[in-house]
Amino acid sequence: MKNNQPAEGSQEAAHQVRLPVSKSTIDLVADLIRKQRKRLGTRWRKVTPGTQAITVLAVLRHDQRLLDMAGGNDVSASTVRRWVIEVIGLLSARAPRLDRALKKIADDGGVVVPLDGTLVRTRRRTGTENRKNYSGKDKPHGLLFLALTDEKGT
């Protein structure tokens, strides 16, 4: 006879994360999600845009496991993955294109464009995709984040 009851004394545990981002960052992401839901005409969702923003930022900032974040919000890991992909798309749509950024710097009289970059660590991918995001110099898996600035740092 199978017993699908939890072990005696076991209880569900919530996973908490200290998220070192400003309230304005959380509000920005939540507003983007809210506008996207309105644009799509979404009638309801399991969580509010603020909760979705905090969950996605925790995944992106701390590389939290999707399953851990899903359990605390009563959704599946695939739902959290979908939220992350949705927010990355919304944030990337706000970024200026390279040609437009360079044109703006030139129009403002800028002649020097410092280029800076950092490696944002990610989880190791499986299969043939494994080596694509591996940095031979720094040795971890990650994505290269580049930034162009003018002389003033803008």
Rank of each mutant, 00 (worst) to 15 (best):
H62D: 12
S22L: 13
L28W: 06
T48A: 11
L102R: 05
N130Q: 15
R65V: 03
W44L: 06
V29A: 04
V80A: 03
P20N: 10
T128M: 08
D138V: 02
I85Q: 11
P49S: 08
G110F: 04
L40W: 14
M1A: 12
L146Q: 14
E8M: 07
R37H: 13
L57T: 00
L19G: 05
T128P: 03
M69V: 07
L119D: 04
V21N: 00
P96Y: 05
T42K: 13
G89Y: 05
V87S: 00
L90T: 04
G110T: 05
N4P: 08
D31R: 10
R61P: 02
Q5M: 09
T126N: 07
K35H: 10
T118K: 15
M1G: 14
L60S: 01
Q16T: 14
E12M: 11
R43G: 12
T79D: 02
R45E: 11
V75E: 02
N73L: 11
H62G: 03
L98A: 12
N133K: 10
K104D: 14
A70D: 01
L19D: 05
S22Y: 06
P49E: 02
P114Y: 09
A53R: 00
M69W: 01
E86G: 04
A77K: 13
A106L: 09
A95H: 05
D74F: 05
D138E: 12
L119F: 09
L40E: 15
G72D: 07
T42C: 08
V47A: 09
A53K: 01
V75D: 00
D27I: 03
N130C: 12
A106C: 06
T48F: 01
L91R: 03
S22I: 04
A58N: 02
R121T: 14
R124E: 15
R131I: 06
L57I: 08
R125I: 02
L115P: 06
H141C: 11
G142W: 03
L148Q: 04
R124W: 08
V113G: 01
N130T: 13
I33R: 01
I88M: 14
N4A: 10
W83T: 00
R43D: 12
I105G: 00
A95M: 14
L19S: 06
S135G: 08
H15A: 15
E8S: 09
V56R: 00
L98Y: 10
W83F: 05
L102Y: 02
L91K: 03
L19M: 10
L60G: 04
L32T: 03
L66F: 14
S135E: 08
S22R: 15
T48E: 09
R125E: 14
T51K: 08
L90N: 05
A147I: 12
P96A: 10
A93R: 10
P96G: 07
R43S: 14
A95V: 13
G117R: 09
L40D: 15
K46H: 14
N3G: 07
S10V: 14
V29I: 13
A13F: 13
A30C: 12
L98N: 04
A147H: 09
K2M: 08
T154V: 13
L102G: 01
F145A: 12
G109Y: 11
S10Q: 14
D68V: 13
L119W: 04
R94G: 14
